[in-house]
Amino acid sequence: MNKSVFLGALTVAGLAAGAAAAGTLDDVKARGKLNCGVVTGLVGFGAPDANGEWQGFDVAVCRAVAAAVLGDPTAVEFVPTTAKTRFTALASGEIDMLARNTTWTFSRDVDLKFEFVGINYYDGQGFMVPKELGVSSAKELDGATICIQTGTTTELNLADFFRKNNISYEPVPIETNAEAQPLYLEGACDVYTTDASGLAATRAAFENPGDHVVLPEIISKEPLGPLVRHGDNDWGDVVRWTLNALIAAEEYGVTSANLEEMSAGTDNPEINRLLGSEGTLGEMLGLSADWAKQAIAAGGNYGELFEKTIGENTPVGLARGLNAQWTDGGLLYAPPFR
């Protein structure tokens, strides 16, 4: 905080500098810090750890972008946003990008004027119920009381699902994941619904995760990804290709372990172009030549990040499933680097 808030508040009326019409990329470089909107707290995707350091799968995307642009994965200011504040924060320029398990939908893209730069997690909405209820399918939930996070697409999917199946339910709207947990655990609602990944993360934080089951139905498509403001294509490209670089790195077998060795040059021209030892991809983006190398060095490639934060060996325990590389039967498919 080099400029004090106090002084800033006092003098802002007099000194309000005219808007610099420069692009976000230049702003970030000039600031030396990336303002990245994240979730207020969802284990595995974005939550401060015991030392107050932000950790998680979405957080890692922020760090990778910061590393690619500024060469420093710690040059990120994490701005926690709720479902309500996230879009305003992005639209008003408070944050440069939003990496907060946000579903890519038509209206958000077209009507709210945001640019989804890609998908970092293919998700779908699921239901979690206590085992003792003996429910095995979402269609048996007639008359159930359901906790939902308001302001998310899950709320709308839920209404559609129950209308389509002609069964009734009782919605209990909740603002944040943290508030939903005690309500669900004390039995104030029978069912908790959100993205399947969120359910797994929430269940991981329970005292007895085994007492709860996630129902097999996935009632919606929830492609989650980072987004930026509409209209700033240069900045959108930077975030888009940083994400693609992480995905491609896994496909080509570039890991944080062999990164140094590979960046010296390999016989695969694709890897060479990615890591900057061949071609001028970095320059085209307005970044340094080793931008992708920096991004991968920040936390590893897509697969490594997945394993570290939400993979099967973590408390969240998600399988790769749809989020495997296309070569392994998943949906991850990075466009070619050339």
């Binding site: 479902a83 309500k84 879009f87 305003t88 639209a91 958000r108 009507d111 709210l112 308001t150 302001g151 998310t152 709320e155 709308l156 709207p173």
Partner: peptide, 15 residues
């Protein structure tokens, strides 16, 4: 506040 100022605001983004 819950409908117009809550869910509607969140869903439409018309703050």
């Amino acid at each position: 506040t819950g409908t117009l100022g809550g869910i509607t605001l969140n869903q439409t983004g018309r703050a």
